[in-house]
């Protein structure tokens, strides 16, 4: 039995705008999402802003009710059996909110330990253990309002683990962490994975997903656009190379001309100071360079390099834009 199942899940938000005369508008966050996550799997959910990642996680953690479709965690339905799911899952949403700022980090953990019915005799030990795990032991008795962003995030991680849940949901856990903090967090996730937890991780960082995840689902505008191991996703672009060209003053007409070339799969532009970086995916490799240069005509071209396509290139191809 898979640990997590999403079966044609749809989620629509109704929002209103306007001051006096409120207009109603429906936002479709999830169009029709079906996927399964196996027990003990570390599953990565990738997608651009607004793709529906957080919505998916909130549905699975019983915080949102799907508009249509069914979802279950450990065999329990997220709507009907919310009470069975809650003690068995842990979750963190990236960012600093969601803590009681006026009391200490230890107080926060002890409070949630009560709410999760951690055995009273074990609370102290468990809290200390987790404080050690996230490296907050020596600051544990200070008020949370004085914590840095990374410390708050680590506190959330400890909170999530209090009741030793079988399934973990991490929504952009490394957002706003410094490189070392992010690496430590990734190591922690790996250890949890090794300990047999089922983990769903959302992230914007391709290398993070590549390094950690067993499988990756890419969603875009509420739809699953690709699903597979990192290798499988890379294979989408395996026969491709990426030609990167530094150009000055590229215009829409140039891009259109490049995209029209039969050997070009996709073109992405990254604007930098005073210049643009064009990333052209093509099966031709180095042989494409002269023909690309030719179609850029009089445009001034700087550095040119050719490399093998990565997961990020696969992602760019799938969601059609760079972030």
């Amino acid at each position: 039995m898979p640990a997590i199942t999403l079966d044609h899940v749809r989620r629509v938000f109704r929002t209103s705008t306007g001051v006096i005369r409120r207009k109603r508008k429906d936002v479709v966050a999830l169009e029709d999402l079906s996927l399964e996550v196996g027990e003990g799997e570390l599953f990565g959910l990738l997608g651009p802003n607004g793709a529906g990642k957080t919505t998916t996680v909130k549905i699975l953690t019983t915080l949102l009710i799907p508009t249509a479709g069914r979802a279950s965690v450990l065999g329990y339905d997220v709507v009907r059996d919310a009470r069975q799911i809650r003690p068995r899952v842990g979750f963190v949403f990236g960012g600093e909110r969601g803590l009681y700022y006026r009391v200490s980090g230890r107080d926060n953990l002890e409070y949630f330990a009560e709410l999760y019915a951690v055995e009273p005799r074990r609370i102290r030990v468990r809290v200390d253990e987790l404080l050690d795990l996230v490296g907050l032991r020596d600051r544990a008795n200070e008020r949370v309002e004085g914590y840095s962003r990374g410390m708050k995030q680590r506190l959330h991680l400890a909170r999530m683990l209090l009741h030793d849940p079988a399934v973990l949901f991490l929504d952009e856990p490394t957002i706003g962490l410094d490189p070392i903090g992010a690496r430590e967090l990734r190591e922690a996730v790996e250890r949890l994975h090794a300990a047999g937890k089922t983990i769903v991780l959302t992230t914007h960082y391709m290398f993070e997903a590549d390094a950690l995840c067993d499988r990756i689902g890419v969603i875009n505008e509420g739809k699953l656009v690709a699903l597979g191991t990192p290798e499988e996703l890379k294979r989408l672009v395996s026969d491709k190379s990426v030609v990167e060209l530094e150009v000055y003053g590229v215009g829409e007409e140039h891009l259109a001309r490049l995209r029209a070339l039969d050997f070009v799969d996709s073109v992405a532009v990254e604007r930098r100071e005073l210049r643009e970086l064009l990333r052209v995916q093509t099966a031709l490799g180095e042989r494409a360079v002269p023909r690309l240069m030719a179609s850029l005509e009089r445009l001034e071209v700087g550095r040119v390099s050719v490399r093998e396509a990565t997961l990020e290139d696969a992602y760019v191809r799938l969601v059609g834009k760079l972030e």
Partner: peptide
């Protein structure tokens, strides 16, 4: 407002 409501609802109590 504090962002803790989701944590409370997501908890078994």
């Amino acid at each position: 407002f504090q962002g803790t409501l989701e944590l409370l609802v997501g908890a078994p109590s």
